[in-house]
Amino acid sequence: MKNLTDQDIEERYRYACEVAVEAANCGFKFYQQRESLVVEHKGDDFQDVVSKADRTVEDLTRTMISSRFPDDDFLGEETGGGDESALCTWVVDPIDGTSCFLNGLHNWCVSIGILVAGQPVVGVVYDPNHRELFRACKGKGAWVNDKPMRVHPGKDVKDGVMGVGVSHRVTPETFVPFIGNLLHKGGMFIRSGSGALMTAWVAAGRLIGYYEPHMNAWDSLPGLVLVVEAGGVSNDFLANHGLLQGNPLLLANETIFAQLSDMITQRLE
């Protein structure tokens, strides 16, 4: 594949928005009939669930992307893939927040990130329940629908609500001390069940930050672009094969990022 021009990236950015909306609309039809879905569990993790809805929506996104950009690489939560050496990789979670989806909670979304030469350049999160399209392209700012986004201007963790996520891929001892440190500093937190959606809320200034001790790339990549383009900062999520193996994720404005980093470090002492 030839090197991508700015126009090539812009074309993929616009198409990612279209794919996210169409995929979420497909998922929403399943959501309205969720009682009839057969639920399966992935491996030994009882909380990690999947249904026909996840697979159907991922198949739709893969088909749409490959029909428009057949030479681009694809990494999906349900079907895998992913090549760290690829020039352009689409990273997709067809339904982030499957447990919420299956239990009738509105905290789920379609998550699409695009890497070019190993760097995150496009992030798209679509929430069909609230008809909100969070979108960003490197160097072009971050938007929710047609409104520009900026991260929370707070100077201290007490100035807003923190988003957090956790899974059984880490032990409670890895995560609980951070929560203790946050509370001791006067902060507060929520866990909505959709990490990708919470990272979009960070970009929109609704949350002061987001932390998860281990997150997969298909949930993390959009937030990396959204938050940075909204004026925030992130850790180096892609270090040490983060694309395929996952990593911790930390997002916030620069001042609060430093405070949160200290809290995470403290728990390791």
Rank of each mutant, 00 (worst) to 15 (best):
K2S: 01
K2G: 09
T5D: 07
Q7K: 15
E10F: 11
A16L: 03
C17Y: 05
A23W: 00
C26F: 12
K29T: 13
F30W: 06
E35K: 12
E35A: 15
S36H: 01
L37Q: 12
V39D: 11
K42W: 09
K42C: 07
D44P: 08
F46P: 02
V49M: 04
V49H: 01
V50N: 09
K52G: 09
R55K: 15
T56G: 04
V57N: 00
T63M: 13
M64Q: 13
I65K: 04
I65V: 12
F69E: 04
D71L: 09
D72M: 05
D73Y: 05
F74A: 01
F74M: 08
L75A: 07
G80K: 09
A86H: 04
W90L: 05
P94I: 00
I95S: 00
I95A: 06
D96S: 02
G97Y: 01
S99T: 15
N103P: 05
N107Q: 10
W108V: 11
V110F: 03
G113I: 00
G113A: 02
I114M: 09
Q119T: 15
V121G: 09
V121M: 13
V122Y: 03
V122N: 04
G123F: 04
G123D: 01
V125Q: 11
Y126D: 08
P128D: 01
H130E: 15
K140R: 15
K140T: 13
G141E: 10
D146P: 10
V151P: 02
H152I: 04
H152Y: 09
G154I: 01
D156P: 04
D156A: 13
G160Y: 10
G160D: 03
V161D: 05
V164M: 14
V166W: 07
V166C: 15
H168T: 08
R169M: 12
G180N: 14
G187V: 05
F189E: 14
S194R: 09
L197N: 00
T199E: 09
V202E: 02
Y210S: 00
Y211A: 08
E212S: 12
E212A: 12
E212G: 15
P213S: 04
H214V: 15
N216C: 13
D219K: 07
S220C: 13
L221W: 11
L221V: 15
P222H: 08
E229S: 12
G232M: 10
L238T: 02
Q245V: 01
G246Y: 06
P248A: 10
L250Y: 05
N253A: 07
F257A: 01
S261A: 14
D262E: 15
Q266Y: 14
